[in-house]
Design a protein around this nucleic acid. Sequence first.
RNA 1: GGAGAGGUGGCUGAGUGGUCGAUAGCGACGGUUUGCUAAACCGUUAGACUGGGAAACCGGUCUCGGGGGUUCGAAUCCCCCCCUCUCCGCCA
Length: 430
Amino acid sequence: MLDLKYVVANAEAVKQNCRDRNVPAAVIEDLDRAVALEAERKAAFHRVEETRRRQNEVAQATGKERDPVKRGLLVEEGKQLKAAAAALEDQLRKLDAGIHDRLRRIPNLTHPDAPIGQTEDDSKEIRTVGVPRAFDFPVRDHVEIGKTLDLIDFETGGKVSGTGFYFLKNDAVLLDLALQQFAMNRLIAAGFTPVITPDLARNSILEGIGFTPRGVETQVYSIENTDLSLVGTAEITLGGMLADTLLDESALPLKYVGLSHCFRTEAGAAGRASRGLYRVHQFTKVEMFAFTTPETSGEMHALMLAIEEELFQALGVPYRVLDICSGDLGGPAYRKFDLEAWMPGRGAAGEYGEVTSTSDCTDYQARRINIRYRPAGQKGTRLVHTLNGTALALSRAIIAVLENHQRADGFIDVPDVLRPYVGKDVLGRR
RNA sequence: GGAGAGGUGGCUGAGUGGUCGAUAGCGACGGUUUGCUAAACCGUUAGACUGGGAAACCGGUCUCGGGGGUUCGAAUCCCCCCCUCUCCGCCA
């Protein structure tokens, strides 16, 4: 959520930002409406405050008054004020709600260096690292590899849980666990505090982080008869950890690395590019999350990107880095970098596919979930900045490892860095 | 799941209808004393929103887990929810 005062003072710039970010026209109309309502709200607010001030005054005077007649008069005035206040407060509540509902649909501002554009094709490739391997044998995709080596079972997943679910078996289990430990250890070495988070969270937390649990297009699984939902990412639980917290500046930055399962309905996403493990309803993810001062969030964003790159370099997987364009940013992101890993089995002759994403959300989430800090040597408090980044999404990392390290004999070489965790050098051998 | 006890400021902890945004202690910050440190003493010390002012500063409203209610007036009484602790039950 943006600061309402900022929106009012910079309405044109915020509108242009909305257009750049490809939000529906209705949101821009909402913005105008919110700005208009704010003037009304302010007036209503002053009326309510004035009434309450008088109420407090009368109530205090009543307590001190010993003369029964005068006291009776004060009580009478108090009753009238009470009725008046109720009506005014009701009006104010409606205005507040009207503004808030509209304000929360407005996306975050956009980093001046982020490319402006409407679709993912407008995102800017910053660099390509590693060279896709030349295979001297027919390349198999991870679905075929998974089936041949009895590593991934989509059919049984479908039978037991439905399309989009799968069973990992045999060495794929070792690979999954190894990747988790590998990522965790790298992040711990970088000073991140490891956390295993709940896989369910309250809807209020989901909303604070910027997810919408309800509605037709929701990507979120909700638990019936509760106010809980399955998390789509540990970003929700990691960010929620510090909801309603006032920190000392000396505590910042706070860096966490969380492990959780992730659940996504992926409504309407079936089809072409989502074969196999690429787009599934459940996967495991190692996620980075940081709370920083406003001055240092850019630096932290660079650190997260560097860590993501380091992880994929270590796994021997070629990738490219994208600076995501305005129109393809999610609501809370001020700037976002994606890593796309080379997946030799994807498409006709291999394609890059998204494996990580790191966003600087500035104060957009912090304002909603109320995370502040006291600046050292200054009065008052400021909102923190929040950032998140994928360390490893297991499902997609598994695709990248299986497809890039497949061998002519059909087995899979284990990347050196994973061997201590996997406990073997080659996957799939019986 | 059942029974009971609780949730108060950065922390601990008083406060059972008006003078309470709140006693006290700790911590932190500023000062006095001091060769330095410690101790002692004095003072300051919640947040959000908002009015006036160039500012220093001076006002107002809200917040005692959250939401509703009773009342002229609620930290205090009532209802619902959330959370914590103890005991019992169940359970990996």
